[in-house]
Amino acid sequence: MTDANPTPERSAEPTDDGEPLRVSTVERLCADIEANVSRVIVGHDDVIEHVITAVLGRGHVLLDDVPGVGKTMLARSIAKSVDCTFSRVQFTPDLLPSDVTGVNVFNQKTREFEFQSGPVFGNIVLGDEINRAPPKTQSSLLEAMEEGQVTTDGTTRELPTPFIVIATQNAVEPNRTYDLPFAEVDRFMKKLHLGYPDPDEEAELLGRTVGDHPIESLEAVTDRETLVAARETVSTVQVAEPVREYATRLVADTRENAHIGVSPRGTISLLRAAQARAVTNGRDYAIPDDIRAEAPVVMGHRIKTTGHDRDGTAVVEDALEHVPVE
C-alpha cells in the first residue's frame, strides 16, 4: 500500500543550490532540529542526533525495532523540521517495485503515457517495515538509495535533493519477513535502535499526546536549501591523517575478528558520519571521538559474525576497546 505524498515539481530542481554554511551555523541548526524533534519524540536524544548526523552526512538510516516505539514519528518530525517533502512506503509482501518508484500511466486526454511518480520521489522517504516486502521490491528502494535516481521503462529520473531514506525493520515475526540481503543492509549508513522509552519518558509521552498530537503543531526550523548547504559544509570537514588511520585500524580489526568485517563503503560512511558529528559539535575537523561515537551504529550492521552469541555491535565495541587511538 502506498501512502505517498509526491512532490514532482520539486524533484526537478537542481541539486547544488547554496554555498556551504559556516560550521557554527550548522551546529546551531542541528541543535535547533534536535530541539524541535525532541518536542515530538520523548527521550532517545542520541538516536535523534544520529539521524540528524546521518541526514547531514548524506546517509540513510535503518531503524530496527519493535512496532510502536515512534519510528515513523521520528522520521516525520525530522522531515517536518527541515521543511522537506515526506513520503512513506508501507512495505507489504505484495508490494510491487512500481508501487515504490512510480508507473507510466496512459493519459486518455493527451493520448500519451505520463509518469506517475512513486513515493520514492520525496526528500525524506520512510520505508516502513521494509523487510516485509519481497527482495525485488526492496531492491527498488535500495537502488534508488544508492544511485540517487530511478529508472522506469528506460527513462532515468533524478531523485530530489536531499534524498534520505529512513527505513524501519520489524524485529518481531521473523518467519513472515524477508531479511534484507547483507549487501543491501550495507547501503544504510546507520542502523539504529529506538527501544522502549523509560517509564518517566513514557509518562511524559502520554501527557504530550493528550489533545492534539505534537506532530501536528510542529513547525519547520529550517528549509530545504539550508539543509543542502549544511550538507555541503559537512563534506568539507577536515579528516586528518591520524583520524583516517584510526578509522582504518578499527575497520581492519573488525575484519580480523568477524566472519565478514566492515566494507570499504562502510569506512567511507564512517568518515562521513564522523564529519557530520564534528560539525554538530562545532568543529571543522573530525577527531577520533567522532569516529568512536559513530562507529557502533555505522559499523555494527555491516559485520557478519559466526556465532549467535555475538553480534556486529559487540565486535565493534571490542575494537573500540582495544584498538589504539594514536
Partner: peptide, 8 residues
C-alpha cells in the same frame, strides 16, 4: 588507555 581518545 591506548584505546581511549584524548577527549574521552
Amino acid at each position: 588507555r591506548g584505546s581511549e581518545s584524548a577527549r574521552a
